[in-house]
């Protein structure tokens, strides 16, 4: 598997909306209030208004379902979505739940981001498959995204 860094996205989140038990698991929605991204070929900020629609499955795996809008430093808008999974040892997941900082190597947090861009400069984003390694922080999340070559 050959890959190269695409960007690191830092997402700031508002307090969680805890919807509780729904038919597929426990639903928690994370409103996105902002953030920033930076990589060799693009950089800019995360616009407020997106979110991550989390679902804790009965097998203990957290499913992630994110939609956000990125704005590059030259004012292009990029639609980003991902689906992903997060799971790990009960003590690590419990510490994350308490808002503590946990070494991201101690849990599995991987995503498959997808992008839509209309500007020619960023059209390469429409044509790549990517994988993100995530880290849950007390104030949001950090995603290191690699392009699969």
């Amino acid at each position: 598997m050959n890959s190269r860094p695409l960007m690191t996205v830092r997402i700031a989140a508002a307090p969680l909306q805890r919807l509780g038990a729904v038919p597929h698991g426990i639903r928690t929605i994370v409103p996105v209030t902002g953030g920033e991204f930076e990589g060799p070929r693009l950089r800019g900020k995360v616009l407020p208004g997106g979110g991550d629609w989390l679902l804790l499955r009965s097998d203990g795996v957290l499913e992630l379902d994110l939609r956000i809008t990125l704005e590059t430093d030259d004012h292009a808008l990029i639609h980003m979505t991902f689906q992903g999974l997060r799971h790990g040892p009960p003590d690590a997941i419990a510490a994350l739940g308490r808002g503590e900082i946990v070494d991201p190597a101690s849990y599995y947090f991987r995503t498959v981001p997808r992008f839509e861009a209309s500007t020619e400069k960023y059209a390469f984003l429409n044509r790549i498959v990517t994988v993100g390694v995530g880290e849950t922080r007390p104030d949001g999340a950090v995603h290191r995204i690699d392009e699969i070559l």
Partner: peptide, 23 residues
């Protein structure tokens, strides 16, 4: 020609497939 497969199974011996990201 790249893709991101996902899996679902109820078989305990393959439950690891429910928990991984693949390319």
């Amino acid at each position: 020609f790249r893709a991101a497969p996902r899996f679902e199974t109820s078989a305990p011996q393959y439950a690891f497939l429910n928990r991984l990201i693949a390319i």
